[in-house]
Amino acid sequence: MSTQRTTRAGAGQTAGSAGRGRADKRLFQTIAYLLLSIVSLFCLIPFVLVLSASLTKESSIIENGYQLIPTLISTEAYSLLFKYPEQMLKAYGVTIGVTALGTAFGLFLTSMTAYVLARKDFKWRNGFSFFFFFTTLFSGGLVPWYLLIVNYLHLKDTFLILVLPLLFNVFYILVMKSFMSGIPEAIAESAKIDGAGDFLIYSRLIIPLSKPVLATIGLFIALGYWNDWYNAMLFISNDNLMPLQYYLYKMLGNMDGMRRAMIASGAVVNLQIPSESLKMAMTIVAIGPILFAYPFIQRFFVQGLTIGAVKG
């Protein structure tokens, strides 16, 4: 499929450049470059603003507000964050743990479920597919779900509740199922003749053949865990279980509380906390790994969207 796309794209380019030198085309391309540049800058500048603000001296922010280019550069916010990093490192630890465990288990369970649904000889596959799919059409809503978790399963303030809700996603199951349906059946047939069981076929044959879709869905799952704050907001009140995004959320909304906690823990002796630059520094710390990994992982997401788009 991907070779086909490249040839098509290549051909598109030839078709496009056949009229090179034509005024209307040059004009259009100029406009396209211009607008794309504007929109791209629009997407990028907010990140630059946050970065600059995190590196600006607090007194300068108080006086002039946040600015694109800092007038007085200072790393005091970062020094403070890294001087008493205990809470931040804990939050990092929780997020990394949740993301690693959730992605590993999520990927295993999603692919296993998808494999069964992709097996054309499995008599009840349509029934089970509908069982999963129906949950995207109708839901009991927030309240029964919340009460079930808090009052019946007693999962409030547990590590597990940060992992469980994002473990399965019907859309990911369906994308994987459609990928696995494209794997020639002859492969599984011959293994079956050699006496391999269903699980063995899945784990030894289908998994290695599904690497592209596993990489893509795995990254989608990992991004979902890394960015999750919602489940923490609903279910976590223990500071030791606060993931990174929720820690940032609390810091943005409750600088006074944060200040008191820092004073109580001896992190600062007086009330002089650069709270405005600190908020922005914490934002940078929270998105740092994503921004760092982004150039390398981006193409997998593009791949995933394209699979989804083809499927509809």
Binding site: F47, N227, D228, Q245, L248, I287, F301
Partner: peptide, 16 residues
């Protein structure tokens, strides 16, 4: 660049 904002959480968008 266009795809970048998709990758950050709504909390970070709130900070921005």
């Amino acid at each position: 660049l266009l795809f970048l904002p998709y990758f950050i959480s709504w909390v970070v968008v709130g900070a921005i």
